[in-house]
């Protein structure tokens, strides 16, 4: 019983952090879904959703409810348990990385020593979900999409990790809070511009978004790995995708854009979250912008770009960083 009382504050903290994580995941999906359709409209010189509420702001709520009301189709030859499991595996792990992201000095679930490793480990579960979904659908397009996704994500995780490793060598810690705090005079994007560029490219590929959305290329693969998913199971995949976008953009903010640093506001330990979210959503805006601007790459171009350019450049960058850290 005493153990229980000593653990109680931690338990309450976990519950509150998990609730906040759920709010972020669903709120982020609503905001990003609306922003995506509205920005797509404006980029194509049309108004976008307009009639559902003022300027269509209820469009995503309406879409979500409609998807809930849709029939759930399970194909006859599908592997039913795996088929039902895949959307959950895509959706559930996104809550854990949100616990360690330092939104501001005081707003953080836990400050783990291995924060970055935790985020990368849980972010790569998404690949497993895509593979399971593609395999269990028993559909050739789903399977092709899943295979492409695995090849792409495994390849792009390497430059992503190495570019982040250069920062780790400079700060000597895996804790996200300390990394964010280490860039108080100068943001790491100034010191490590190459690592930042490589991370941005790898980030787009990791979240399977255009111009690297080969796993769901609709001109070749119908809808890729989620071809057979309807209704709520499809929307769980989409929720997972938007949450993953939020996570990779948060990591970019923490590692390169100074975390919550900005023009100091009153109660800066708490109000730092404003700057943090501003930077995250600017990066997300960038992701949407390039999605509706550039055409899709070919798959061999995609893989060549990773193995022949991104990985060597990130290794060189790492080497230079290590030498400079040793010398200075």
């Amino acid at each position: 019983m005493e153990i229980f009382y000593s653990l109680l504050p931690e338990l309450i903290r976990i519950v509150i952090a998990a609730i906040c994580g759920a709010v972020i995941v669903f709120g982020n999906a609503l905001v990003m879904g609306y922003a995506e359709r509205k920005l797509a409209g404006h980029i194509m010189f049309r108004p976008g959703p307009m009639e559902v509420g003022p300027h269509g702001i209820y469009q995503l709520v309406i879409d979500g409810l409609k998807l809930m009301g849709k029939q759930l189709v399970i194909p006859k030859n599908a592997d039913t348990p795996l088929f039902m499991l895949a959307p959950l595996i895509a959706f559930a792990p996104v809550f854990v990385p949100l616990l360690v992201i330092p939104f501001s000095d005081k707003i953080q679930g836990f400050d783990l020593d291995v924060g970055l490793l935790l985020i990368l480990a849980f972010a790569s579960i998404n690949v497993l979900a895509i593979l399971i979904g593609g395999w269990s659908s028993n559909n050739k397009y789903s399977l092709f999409g899943a295979i492409r996704s695995v090849a792409q994500n495994v390849a792009y995780e390497i430059p992503m990790l190495i570019s982040l490793l250069a920062i780790i060598f400079m700060t000597n810690t895996f804790s996200l809070k300390e990394i964010a705090a280490a860039q108080s005079p100068v943001w790491f994007v100034v010191i490590q511009p190459l690592a930042f560029l490589i991370y941005i490219v790898a980030m787009v590929a990791e979240t399977n978004r255009a111009p690297f959305d080969l796993p769901e290329a609709e001109s070749e693969l119908t809808a890729g790995f989620h071809t057979e998913y309807s209704g709520m199971s499809f929307s769980l995949f989409v929720l997972g995708e938007y949450a993953n976008m939020f996570i990779v953009c948060s990591v970019a903010t923490v590692f390169f854009l100074g975390g919550d640093s900005g023009i100091p506001l009153p109660y800066f330990e708490y109000t730092g979250i404003i700057w943090f979210l501003l930077k995250v959503y600017l990066l997300m805006f960038f992701l949407i912008w390039i999605r509706w601007t550039y055409p899709r790459t070919r798959f061999d171009q995609l893989m060549n770009f990773c193995w022949k350019y991104l990985i060597p450049f990130s290794l060189v960058n790492l080497l230079i960083t290590v030498v400079m850290v040793k010398l200075l």
Partner: peptide, 15 residues
Amino acid sequence: DMARYGAEVFRPSPR
């Protein structure tokens, strides 16, 4: 612009 009525999401998959 069908998007005004929320009908612009042309899904490639019938599901």
